[in-house]
Design a protein around this nucleic acid. Structure first.
Lengths: 217, 217
DNA sequence: GATAAATAACTAACCAGTCAGTTATTAAGT
DNA sequence: ACTTAATAACTGACTGGTTAGTTATTTATC
């Protein structure tokens, strides 16, 4: 009789892995349904535990939210910085790496849903929003600004208001991520190849930033 | 004695005006707190009525949501179209009018919060999302595409993948609106003048779309 | 006083957070 | 090895507060 063996329902104990399993489950559900519409029972179920277990690791739903942001994103920023440093001498290449690296490391992954999540919930959770601005948005923008400044210094890009242009250049990236996690899901979008999108964007920006022929610099 | 007149205040009957008052109240609350986190009691209170009254005009919370989108946005699209037709012969001017008109008619108003709202809730309310895509996003994009195509036809803009570029050009506009209704609220943003932002954006795009000096076309 | 508009009290369902109890794992005693 | 004790991980039923949606009643208007 194999019953005796088969009947063993697993219920594994793995204290170490739980928080990550829970934040991963929470991330995907928060992104999919929004924070308020996500039930903690569902988060727990997706992580393969009960809701009670969730509360062994996180004090509250909001604490879980913060952990999702913290664990998910902050490490990626550092990765991005390293990626760019590899091309510090070539601003055009740096810009290109920024766009495609952003997509590869962030936008195309599960984390690509975080901008949507944070945008939706910023007002409801000011502390999380401030953390996100400080640890993600500002470093990300600073990195972009460095690309621009370096291009100007090298005479490859024309002078612009780099604060504003940084903001502007982030927008199509974020838009791509937001789109994928909102309208793209429920409304069939025939052709929206991220690579082609980024290529068009890169092309547009490169020409938009080129030093003007007349006037020189 | 004016008391007799003044005292009359409490319950006004105005069947005609109610739906608009309610959708206006709902819009501001949905934008501020998100759909799920908004209480119908609060919507009713802000419109100066009770929750029961709300149900005289809308079948459900979702029906109210749809009405908010329908009544709020659709009229604005038509206004925008008319605005652009006034400059049909000058693509550069048309592009400029698009950007600043979008801001004046839409982004800077209460409606500017709708992109945030729709992005957050698209997955939870696919029917509303489809309506929004069909009635707002597609017409808005079509209008932008017309600007681009006209520019190409006139030899003012270079040839591009207009489907992708349209998407890309909408992004900084939407980003401006999203930003204002999310992070800008809880984290002090020192300088983010919409006019300067749009000016920088216009400048960037105009140069990005200019026919290339060599090659001419 | 008849009808339409609006209300406020109500219900049913839902869900974040709790906790008494269960099961797996480890340690100690024999 | 083999039982027993102690601990750590986990569970799921429960609670208390909340809210979408309903309805019996009140209030205004003609």
């Amino acid at each position: 009789m194999s019953d005796a063996v088969i009947k063993k329902a697993p219920v594994r104990r793995r204290k170490e892995a739980r928080p990550q399993e829970l934040t991963a489950a929470a991330l995907s559900l928060f992104v999919e349904k929004g924070f308020a519409a996500t039930r903690l029972d569902e988060v727990a179920a997706r992580a393969g535990v009960s809701k009670g277990t969730l509360y062994l690791y996180f004090d509250s739903k909001e604490a879980l939210f913060l952990a999702v942001i913290r664990e998910g994103i902050v490490p990626v920023i550092e990765e991005g910085r390293k990626l760019l440093e590899a091309h510090a001498d070539d601003p055009e290449r740096m810009l290109r790496e920024y766009l495609f690296g952003w997509w590869a490391l962030f936008g195309s992954t599960e984390l690509g849903g975080v901008p949507k999540l944070m945008t939706s919930e910023a007002q409801n959770f000011p502390e999380v929003a401030q953390y996100y601005v400080r640890e993600v948005i500002q470093p990300g923008k600073a990195l972009m600004r460095e690309v621009l400044d370096r291009g100007v210094a090298k005479g490859v890009f024309r002078q612009t208001n780099s604060e504003l242009v940084t903001h502007i250049l982030m927008a199509p990236l974020l838009h791509l991520a937001l789109w994928r996690h909102s309208f793209a899901v429920c409304c069939q979008v025939p052709d929206m190849d991220p690579a082609a999108y980024l290529e068009s964007f890169f092309d547009l920006v490169l020409k938009g930033l080129a030093v003007t022929p007349e006037g020189g610099k």
